[in-house]
Amino acid sequence: MHKDSGASVPKRLLVHLVMLTIGILLVSFSIWLIYLTYFKGTHRAEEALAKKAVPRQEMLYESFHGIDESIQAGSKSKSWCLKCHEDLSHSKSKEVRGMLNAHSFFLACEVCHIAPKAGEKFEYKWLQRGSNTPLTALKGQPGDYGGTIIPFRIENGVPRRLDENQEALQFLDESASKDSDGDNEKRKMRLNTDIHKEFSPKPIFCDECHRENGPLNFVQLMYSPQRAQLLTFGEGANVIKQYKDFYLPSLMRNARSER
């Protein structure tokens, strides 16, 4: 019946061995597929939870927001605020600090930490990190376009940056090579007050920007229409609206307390 019936015994054995190996591999793969479909996740709650957080194993290497690259880019070009406040300036709330710090790599601090007064007008522009050159297009991954969104307050028709204080910058450069003394401390305190008078430690909330007709016009900020839609109505924006108090991370709190 078999074509190889006339073949030599070693050749027949080799064919059987190859076919047996292929067969075992294929059967194993089939069993794994059945396990994936019917068993994984139903009997192992922890793995199912992990699977929800990391829906694809590719996430081991590719972060959804490209955060890893943002962190590298951010640490290379500190904003003026980060000269004192460090790269990861949000540290108090464990639940949300990661998300806030991720934003601080492409948003100037004053976007959220301004105390706007009635009637004030702002204009937002992408500037290249470490320079005042405006970006002409958004290239790269979300969260890592090589620039920072900077707010400008329109004063008498002229846009003005809120974080510019040449004296403070000069002071920082000088104090790096100087021992602290009384005069220095007084000047530092005065400058500290000057710098922060425009700022509010309590930020505006996320949905003040992630909404329709918010202060940030995502299309004017050169996001694609689809990305702008996502930032306005998408998953992230909805989570922000739904979980104003960030109850979502309570999942993590429960997991911690159970341990």
């Binding site: 067969g23 294929l26 059967v27 793969f29 089939s30 994936l36």
Partner: peptide, 13 residues
């Protein structure tokens, strides 16, 4: 998943 199983079990074998 269905196609992979159909190819392996239903076709190759």
């Amino acid at each position: 998943t269905l196609a992979a199983l159909a190819i392996i079990v239903g076709h190759i074998f």
